[in-house]
C-alpha cells in the first residue's frame, strides 16, 4: 500500500516537473532532438496547454455527466420506459463510431477551434455514462426498493437517497471511461486547432523532432494514468462504503 503511494507521488512529481519546469529535462530529451534543433517546446507554455486541455476534458465530462444521468433517470422511470429500447440502440450504434471520426465529422458541421472539439467530446462522452447509469439504476435490488417504499419515502426521496447513491459506483465507472476517452480525444483535437497538449506531439511529428513527441506523449500519458488511478480509487472507496451500508 505504501509502495503504491510512493509510486503515485513520484509520478505526480514527475508530471508537475514536466509541466512547470520543462528546462530541467533538456539533457534527457536532447538525444532525441534533431541536430541543433530546439529540445523543449517553446511556442506555448506547457502549463497553459495542460490547463486548456484539462479544461476541455472537465467541461465536456461534467456536461456529459449532467445530461447523461438526467436522461438515464428519465428513461428508468415508468413514464420514460418507452424510450429505453431506442436509447439503447442509439448508445450501441454511437459507441461503434470511432472518436476520431466524431471529431472529424464535427468539423464540417461546426468549423475549427475548441468548439467542435468540445461538442465532439461531449457527445461521445454521453454514451458510456448513460449506459452505465441506466445499468446502475435498473439493476438495484428489488428488496431494497421495496423497503424504501415501505418506510414511506416519496419517489423523489427514493431517487436521491436510495437509487442514486446505490448506483453511484457504476455511474462513476462510466464517468471514468468517458473522461479517459475525452482526454485521449482532446489530444487529437489539436489537429482541428483546439489548444491542447496534442499540439506538442503534432509539432514534433511535423518537424521530425522526437523530443517534442516524447515530451507531449509523456505529459498526456501521465495525466491519463493519474486520472484513471484517482477515479479507480474513488470508486473502490465508495463501493466499500456503500457495500458496508447495504451488507451490514
Amino acid at each position: 500500500m505504501t509502495r503504491a503511494l510512493v509510486f503515485r507521488a513520484a509520478l505526480c512529481a514527475l508530471l508537475l516537473a514536466l509541466v512547470l519546469r520543462p528546462d530541467w529535462f533538456v539533457p534527457v530529451f536532447a538525444p532525441f532532438a534533431p541536430e541543433g534543433g530546439p529540445v523543449i517546446y517553446a511556442r506555448a507554455s506547457l502549463l497553459s496547454l495542460s490547463l486548456s486541455h484539462l479544461g476541455l476534458v472537465v467541461l465536456a465530462t461534467v456536461a456529459a455527466t449532467l445530461v447523461a444521468v438526467t436522461l438515464a433517470i428519465l428513461v428508468t422511470r415508468p413514464a420514460g420506459a418507452v424510450f429505453r429500447p431506442l436509447s439503447r440502440t442509439i448508445t450501441n450504434i454511437g459507441q461503434t463510431f470511432p472518436p476520431v471520426a466524431v471529431l472529424a465529422l464535427a468539423v464540417p458541421a461546426l468549423g475549427f477551434g475548441a468548439g467542435p472539439t468540445l461538442v465532439a467530446l461531449f457527445l461521445y462522452g454521453l454514451l458510456p455514462i448513460f449506459e452505465n447509469a441506466v445499468t446502475g439504476l435498473a439493476a438495484l435490488p428489488t428488496a431494497t426498493m421495496e423497503a424504501a417504499r415501505g418506510i414511506g419515502l416519496t419517489r423523489w426521496q427514493r431517487l436521491w437517497r436510495v437509487e442514486l447513491p446505490l448506483a453511484l459506483p457504476v455511474i462513476l465507472t462510466g464517468i471514468r471511461l468517458s473522461a479517459v476517452i475525452a482526454l485521449g480525444t482532446a489530444t487529437i483535437g489539436s489537429t482541428v486547432a483546439a489548444r491542447t497538449l496534442g499540439e506538442v506531439i503534432i509539432a514534433g511529428l511535423l518537424t521530425n523532432n522526437t523530443a517534442y513527441v516524447l515530451q507531449g506523449g509523456l505529459v498526456v500519458g501521465l495525466f491519463a494514468v493519474l486520472l484513471y488511478d484517482a477515479m479507480v480509487q474513488l470508486e473502490t472507496r465508495l463501493a466499500r462504503r456503500f457495500g458496508n451500508l447495504t451488507g451490514g
Partner: peptide, 18 residues
C-alpha cells in the same frame, strides 16, 4: 494492461516512434 489502455492514442503512437 488496463493502464496501457488508458494512455491516449496519440501519446502512445508518439512514444512508439523513438
Amino acid at each position: 494492461l488496463s493502464f496501457l489502455q488508458t494512455i491516449p492514442s496519440l501519446a502512445m503512437f508518439g512514444i512508439m516512434i523513438p
